Amino acid sequence: MMGNLKPLEILLIVAVIFLLFGAKKLPDMARSLGKSARILKSEAKAMKKDGEAEDAAAASSVADQAPQAQAAPRTIQAAPGDVTSSRPVSEPNRTAQG
């Protein structure tokens, strides 16, 4: 459907958007959209770095530790008293660092 748009139709859509939002709001909207995209990208990179560092630390600490007794899995419920949608949750094994 979108592949069949002709240049005149695209121009008409852009003109309608321009009329709806006005000349003053469009640059501000574009600026805030670009800022949001940059923030999202930087946060995603930071989370990826943290995840890689955490995985490396966990792998080295697991090799150094003796096996521990496994606790019963916790359960998360969607609503209080709603047992039909509850599911077990696996939690990462975290060690005390001192």
Rank of each mutant, 00 (worst) to 15 (best):
M1Q: 07
M1R: 06
M2K: 03
M2I: 11
G3W: 00
G3V: 01
L5Q: 02
K6R: 12
P7G: 02
P7K: 07
I10Q: 07
I10L: 15
I10C: 10
L11Q: 12
L12G: 06
I13S: 04
V14Q: 12
V14M: 10
A15F: 04
V16E: 14
V16Q: 11
V16C: 04
I17P: 00
F18K: 08
L20Y: 08
F21W: 10
F21M: 09
G22I: 06
G22D: 12
G22R: 05
A23D: 13
A23R: 14
K25W: 05
L26E: 07
L26S: 09
P27D: 06
A30K: 07
A30W: 11
A30Q: 08
R31C: 02
S32P: 00
S32Y: 08
S32V: 05
S32M: 06
L33T: 05
L33K: 08
G34P: 01
K35C: 01
K35S: 07
K35E: 11
K35P: 00
S36Q: 10
S36N: 08
A37I: 13
A37V: 10
A37F: 10
R38Q: 08
R38P: 00
I39L: 11
I39K: 05
I39M: 04
I39P: 00
K41S: 13
K41A: 14
A44F: 02
K45I: 10
K45M: 12
M47L: 15
K48F: 09
K48Q: 14
K48L: 12
D50E: 15
G51R: 09
E52W: 09
E54L: 13
D55V: 07
D55S: 13
D55A: 15
A56G: 01
A56R: 14
A56K: 15
A57Q: 09
A58Q: 12
A58W: 07
A59Y: 07
A59K: 15
V62E: 15
V62G: 04
A63Y: 07
D64N: 09
A66D: 15
P67N: 02
Q68D: 08
Q68N: 07
Q68R: 10
Q70N: 08
Q70C: 04
A71C: 04
A72K: 03
P73G: 03
P73T: 04
P73H: 03
R74F: 03
R74I: 09
R74H: 05
T75P: 00
T75E: 11
I76R: 07
Q77T: 06
A79N: 15
P80K: 03
P80W: 02
P80A: 02
G81P: 02
G81W: 05
G81Q: 01
G81K: 02
D82G: 12
D82E: 15
V83A: 09
T84A: 13
T84E: 13
T84C: 02
S85T: 12
S85C: 03
S86T: 10
R87A: 06
P88E: 01
P88Y: 01
P88H: 00
S90T: 15
E91K: 06
E91F: 03
P92L: 05
P92D: 08
N93E: 12
R94E: 08
T95M: 05
T95D: 03
A96H: 09
A96C: 07
Q97F: 06
Q97R: 10
Q97D: 07
